[in-house]
């Protein structure tokens, strides 16, 4: 008598089977994992750019300061870099010839026995000059373009641009 009552109650209040629970868990995990990965990997890419930014900015500043000094010392002909196609003249090779810049890039791209020429595929420095609205000033532009260390694309994904207004000598 008692057993029949219990059985009837159980049938009336039938819950979820283990299989159903497992299925729900699997569907939940299948949905949540790609979302979590999206946040983690997306955030990581952003962080890498933030990390690389101070290094590249410092190198670009260094180039610009050196050029400004060369102009003051009368050793730099701005006309050589004027009227280019808007992108500027590629000065990457002369920039990475410098030992300290090369070392900074080496730390930037990893230290596994690589020559400076390897950086040519990873970064590009473009220099251009143009007259400014003030006839006494000239505008010098440095564009530093770079790729992440694992990217082999020919198109550069990241870049910074520095401008300097310099009085004509």
């Amino acid at each position: 008598m008692n057993t029949n009552v219990i059985q009837n109650n159980r049938k009336a209040r039938q819950g979820l089977s283990l299989l159903e629970v497992m299925l729900a868990v699997v569907i939940f995990i299948l949905g949540i994992i790609p979302l979590l990965r999206l946040f983690s990997e997306g955030g990581l890419a952003q962080q890498k750019v933030i990390r690389d930014f101070p290094v590249t900015l410092s190198i670009a500043e260094r180039i610009l300061m050196t050029i400004e000094n060369e102009i003051d010392e009368g050793r730099f002909d701005t006309a050589m870099f004027t009227g280019t196609d808007g992108n500027g003249v590629d000065i990457t090779e002369s920039v990475i010839e410098n030992q300290e810049v090369s070392m900074a890039l080496e730390k930037f791209y990893g230290t596994d026995n690589q020559s400076a020429t390897r950086f040519l595929t990873q970064c590009r420095v473009l220099l251009s000059t143009k007259p400014s609205s003030d006839p006494n000033l000239i505008e010098i532009t440095i564009r530093f373009l770079w790729n992440d260390r694992d990217t082999n694309s020919k198109d550069f994904k990241h870049g910074i641009e520095l401008h300097l207004l310099k009085g004509k000598i």
Partner: peptide, 26 residues
Amino acid sequence: DANLIKYFVRITDEKNVEHVIANAVK
């Protein structure tokens, strides 16, 4: 040159990974 100083600073983090900043001051 008299008016240009180039410098670089090399540091390590907790995991002994090196970082270098190379800059110049006019």
